[in-house]
Simulated assay, not measured.
Amino acid sequence: MRIFRIAALLFAALLTAFTLAGPASAAKGGSGNPHFIYVTPSLVGNNLQVDFKEAGVGAGASVDVSTTATFTYELGCINGGSKHPKAANKEAFSVTPTASGSFTANAGGNVVASLTLVAPTDEEILATLECPPGQTTTLFSAYWSGLSITDVTNGITIAIPGTWSVF
């Protein structure tokens, strides 16, 4: 009989502890199981547009989402004869822009939105390398890589493999 009482007390204590603690998702503002359904990057001019759908955030919940990627470009100097001299005047540069926003989930607990990573302007790119007199700064290649997206509110980050060539 005594063992039955101890077991009943332990069960009641555990039930109380779990009831007070609540489900793990309650720590995330009552959200369910936040996760990205898709992340689709595409080039819009030189910029990288990142379309995404996140589910399980809870109807009407607000989430902060950010995305980042590296924009790498290679410049060199071309002489008047349209030749690229063999001198060490060909260099790679990179920048890592970030885009972010706050979004409200629909009645189904989903966020469908897009963020755009903005590339440097042509003028900004060409200004990063100064060529000797008589030579012209020329862009040889440019691409995006290292894309990731983060639901800052729920602490979820995923990396998106790939390279998106601009030039």
Rank of each mutant, 00 (worst) to 15 (best):
G58S: 03
S94Y: 02
G162W: 05
A105H: 01
G108L: 15
L14K: 00
T163G: 12
A8D: 02
I156P: 00
A13N: 02
H35F: 09
Y38Q: 07
F52R: 04
T116E: 13
S102W: 04
N106A: 00
T150V: 08
F18T: 13
A55I: 05
F36C: 05
L10F: 07
G101V: 03
G162F: 06
V50F: 08
P161K: 08
L20G: 06
S82W: 12
N89H: 11
T16S: 09
G101I: 03
A119F: 03
A24L: 15
P41T: 05
K28F: 14
L10Q: 00
L14A: 07
A69V: 08
A87C: 11
E124F: 03
F167Q: 12
K28I: 10
N33D: 13
S145Q: 12
A8T: 03
I160F: 07
P97H: 02
V39P: 08
V152G: 06
G155M: 07
L48K: 00
L126G: 06
A27W: 11
L20Y: 08
F103D: 05
T16I: 08
K28N: 14
F103E: 01
G109C: 02
Y143I: 04
S25F: 14
G22R: 05
I160Q: 11
S165P: 02
A26G: 13
L9T: 02
T157F: 09
A113R: 08
A21M: 09
A92V: 05
C131Q: 06
P34Y: 04
A26F: 13
G29D: 05
G45E: 07
T163A: 13
F11T: 13
T16E: 02
A105E: 01
